[in-house]
C-alpha cells in the first residue's frame, strides 16, 4: 500500500458557478458519505483536517494577497491522504469525489 495525496480544487469565485444552499446541503452530504466510504475501506491514511476558507497568497514579488486565489480562479478546497496500491486505484477512488459535481478537479500525488 502506498499513500496518496488528493487535492480538491474548484472555482470558488465566479458567482454564477456557485451552488444554491439546497445544492450545497446535498453536496455536503455527499462529502460526508465519500469520506465515510473511504474510511469504511480502511483507506484513510491520516485523520481528516478541515481548512479555513480565507487564506492568503504570497506572490513572487513578495506581495501578500488576501484570499486563497492566485492568478487562476481555482483554489484548494481541501486535501486528504489515502492508502491505495497505485495511481490507478487512487484515481478510481477520486472518481467519486464530490468536488467533481461542482466542476472541480482532484490532483493526485503519491507519497515517496
Amino acid at each position: 500500500m502506498n499513500e496518496f495525496l488528493l487535492v480538491f480544487r474548484r472555482d470558488y469565485q465566479t458567482r454564477e458557478d456557485q451552488p444554491s444552499p439546497d445544492q450545497m446541503q446535498e453536496h455536503f452530504k455527499n462529502w460526508k458519505n465519500w469520506f465515510g466510504s473511504i474510511a469504511a475501506q480502511d483507506k484513510l491514511a491520516r485523520p481528516l483536517q478541515r481548512w479555513d476558507g480565507e487564506g492568503k497568497v504570497v506572490n513572487h514579488d513578495k506581495t501578500i494577497l488576501n484570499g486563497p486565489y492566485a492568478e487562476i480562479k481555482e483554489s484548494i478546497g481541501g486535501l486528504i491522504v489515502i492508502k491505495a496500491a497505485n495511481y490507478e486505484e487512487a484515481a478510481e477512488i477520486a472518481k467519486s469525489c464530490p468536488i467533481l459535481e461542482l466542476g472541480g478537479n482532484v490532483e493526485i500525488r503519491m507519497a515517496l
Binding site: F35, G36, A39, A40, Q41, L44, P47
Partner: peptide, 16 residues
C-alpha cells in the same frame, strides 16, 4: 452520518 464519523475516527470492520 454517525457511522461515517465513527469510521473516520477509528476504523473497525464491524462499523464498516
Amino acid at each position: 452520518d454517525l457511522y461515517n464519523h465513527l469510521l473516520i475516527l477509528e476504523y473497525s470492520p464491524i462499523a464498516a
